[in-house]
Design a protein around this nucleic acid. Structure first.
Length: 277
DNA sequence: GGTATTCCCTGCGGGC
DNA sequence: TGCCCGCAGGGAATAC
């Protein structure tokens, strides 16, 4: 379940292995990802040099020297790694890019919720990523953020998961940010106060910064671009801690279903309604 | 237009 | 031991 910190970790670890390398060829498996790999893309990629690798929300963008790019979303179980060409082939490896130094960029995805495709025009990129991908959490304007929350009748949890509101937050860090801000995931956006909105905005940034510093969370099988596991799963305060005592008040963490996702919170620290700040 | 729900997909764990 | 079922969840499609 790669969210922003995990994707950021992947690109940081891929960067020294990938930037400057030339792509020689592409080998695509038979099974389709979210989007099928087109053989023509492989022909256009051959000989291209990787100029940069960057992130936008949960998307990975690999810039090539002719202005085109490889665009990938890891979905739930996607993994991008650079390995030696003689490294054993793991099952569920769907795309293999041969590089000019004898290594390979491999895309593996058990559930195939992810995608990796080639884009040569701005229109293609926009159609893939969505024209309305929200700002990075660090770029949220406090006033716009408050107004966006206040206009919605959805729960805060549902709003945080909406990539058009803020890019990169997923289920784990939505729960952690709401816990850090001491706000109920069930609270309706329209009911939020300006101080609460600001507290939530700051909580999102703090939680994501800490998670990036810990190289993300390895809940099941996530690994970074070098194959190393994250460490932030040991620092989670709410997510996945159903039935365990809240670190603040010792009340048991509860799990409910919100916006179609398991949602973890402390009923005492994050009450459904509160009169104080 | 805004919001809620369903579906895709596979591995894992619990229950029987 | 082996089988069945539910769960995990990002984003697109569909329903309301």
């Amino acid at each position: 379940m790669p969210e922003l910190p995990e994707v950021e970790t992947v690109i940081r670890e891929l960067r020294p292995r990938l930037v400057g390398r030339r792509l020689r060829s592409v080998e695509a498996g038979a099974k389709k990802l979210r989007f099928a790999w087109q053989p023509a893309w492989g022909l256009r990629l051959a000989g291209r040099r990787v100029e940069a690798i960057r992130r936008r929300g949960k998307w990975i963008m690999i810039d090539l020297d002719d202005g085109s790019l490889l665009l990938s979303h890891l979905g739930m179980t996607g993994k991008l790694r650079v390995v030696r060409a003689d490294a054993p082939h793991e099952p569920h490896t769907h795309l293999i890019f041969a590089l000019d130094d004898g290594s390979e960029l491999r895309y593996r995805d058990v559930r195939r919720f992810g995608s990796l495709r080639y884009c040569s025009t701005a229109a293609e990129i926009e159609s893939m990523m969505g024209e309305t991908l929200g700002p990075e959490p660090w770029d949220l304007d406090p006033e716009n953020w408050y107004e966006r929350l206040r206009r919605s009748r959805r729960s805060l949890k549902a709003i945080l998961l909406d990539q058009t509101v803020v890019a990169g937050v997923g289920n784990i860090y939505a729960d952690e940010a709401l816990f850090a801000a001491r706000l109920s995931p069930r609270m309706v956006g329209a009911r939020i106060t300006r101080p609460h909105a600001e507290r939530l905005r700051r909580a999102i940034v703090v939680v994501l910064d800490r998670a990036i510093a810990a190289r993300g969370s390895t809940i099941r099988d996530y690994v970074g671009g070098s194959g190393r596991r994250g460490r932030y799963q040991h620092k989670l305060l709410a997510y996945g801690r159903t039935g365990q005592p809240c670190p603040n008040c010792s009340r048991l963490i509860q799990c409910i279903r919100l916006a179609g996702r398991a949602t973890h919170y402390c009923p005492r620290c994050q009450p459904a309604s509160r009169s104080h700040r």
